[in-house]
């Protein structure tokens, strides 16, 4: 089973680290994994996206022409990737920044007011981890426990003091849809 997910948004929203965090956890699970960042001239403030492919067998292309899942952190990326997502696929949107009035009928959209939730935690920068938590829940793509376990390795020593808040954000997201 091959599942491709595109994470997208503004540069600086933590889009690439969402993908990296997921890819590393899936790798620990023993799956075939590729992580492919878009690259271009823009660095901060431009659009950024990355594709994570997870499979039980070798992965042909690390690029997704029709992703199964899309996570959209801003309006331009929502408009761009909703047209690509597979029929029956799912888009997770950061509803704090995305207006979804014009959406395709054959895909599922889940809205998460990410920025508001992040404010509750007291750090806007972990909005990405909140939406990643929700994503793990709805996609069931890799064990959540594995993701948490791998978090210290992802953050590294330099950012180890951010471990707690990132973990809280992931958990907040993971449990968000339970109610």
């Amino acid at each position: 089973m091959l599942i491709k997910t595109v994470f997208s948004g503004f540069g600086g929203q933590g889009v690439l680290s969402m993908g990296h965090t997921l890819a590393s956890a899936a790798m620990l699970e023993g799956k075939y994994v590729t992580y492919f960042p878009s690259y271009g001239a823009e660095v901060r403030g431009g659009t950024a996206n990355c594709t994570v492919s997870i499979s039980d067998e070798e992965i042909a292309s690390p690029v997704a022409s029709q992703p199964d899942f899309v996570v959209s952190m801003n309006q331009p990326s929502f408009l761009r990737f909703q047209s690509l997502v597979q029929s029956g696929g799912l888009i997770l949107v950061n509803s704090s920044m995305v207006n979804i009035t014009s959406v395709r009928g054959d895909i599922e959209v889940v809205e998460i007011p990410t920025s508001e939730l992040a404010e509750k935690l007291g750090n806007l920068k972990v909005a990405n981890m909140i939406i990643l938590g929700v994503f793990i829940k709805v996609s069931n793509i890799t064990p959540f426990t594995l993701l948490l376990k791998n978090l210290p390795a992802i953050l590294g020593e330099k950012r180890s003091r951010l471990l707690k808040i990132n973990k809280e954000a992931l958990e907040l997201g993971f449990n968000y849809l339970q109610g």
Partner: peptide, 10 residues
């Protein structure tokens, strides 16, 4: 090429 260089894999 750009795909192989940018890509992450185990």
């Amino acid at each position: 090429d750009g795909v192989l260089a940018q890509m992450m894999e185990p």
